[in-house]
């Protein structure tokens, strides 16, 4: 489960740190283990969504947040949501991992074998979706 790519993101997270410009902020927790993320989004004029975050928690939740930042920062809602849905399907073992959609996120495939950890891997991505919806990103994208 702990592939090099994941450990790399965990030790050197990308994009960690909150931006002061944002349209919405969410705080998601994994109540069984105390992983936490605060995530902010700003919807830009062209419908793209700028994301920033701060978090604490296990290696999987932290690496996954870093990968999320790499993958979907500055995507519009539809494109970002496609990645979220693909990650969910992959962790439910319903699709083969697609590197074009998830980038380094395909390394999270091993998490699917550990049901207790799936929430850790999804935490940042679900926070992104929640924040984007609250910021009205769905309406903006058209």
């Amino acid at each position: 489960m702990y592939q090099e790519i994941i450990l790399d993101h965990y030790k050197h997270p990308h994009g960690k740190g909150l931006s002061s410009e944002f349209a919405s902020e969410v705080h998601h927790v994994n109540p069984t283990c105390g992983d936490e993320i605060t995530l902010r989004v700003q919807v830009l004029a062209d419908g793209k969504i700028a994301v920033s975050y701060d978090n604490q928690g296990c290696s999987i939740s932290q690496a996954s947040a870093s990968i999320m930042y790499d993958q979907i920062n500055n995507f519009d809602f539809a494109a970002g949501d496609k990645a979220v849905e693909h990650l969910i399907a992959m962790l439910q073992r319903n699709v083969e991992p697609d590197e074009d959609i998830l980038g380094d996120g395909i390394a999270l495939v091993g998490v699917a074998q550990y049901p207790a950890r799936v929430k850790c891997a999804l935490l940042a991505w679900m926070a992104w979706k929640d924040a984007a919806i609250q910021a009205g990103a769905i309406e903006e994208q058209s």
Partner: peptide, 26 residues
Amino acid sequence: GLHSHDVGQVLDENGIAVRVGHHCAW
């Protein structure tokens, strides 16, 4: 430098069952 989930996971790989998290005493 290491979250309890990760400690627990490595212990589990070694057959050791411990509990990780806040133990319902947040």
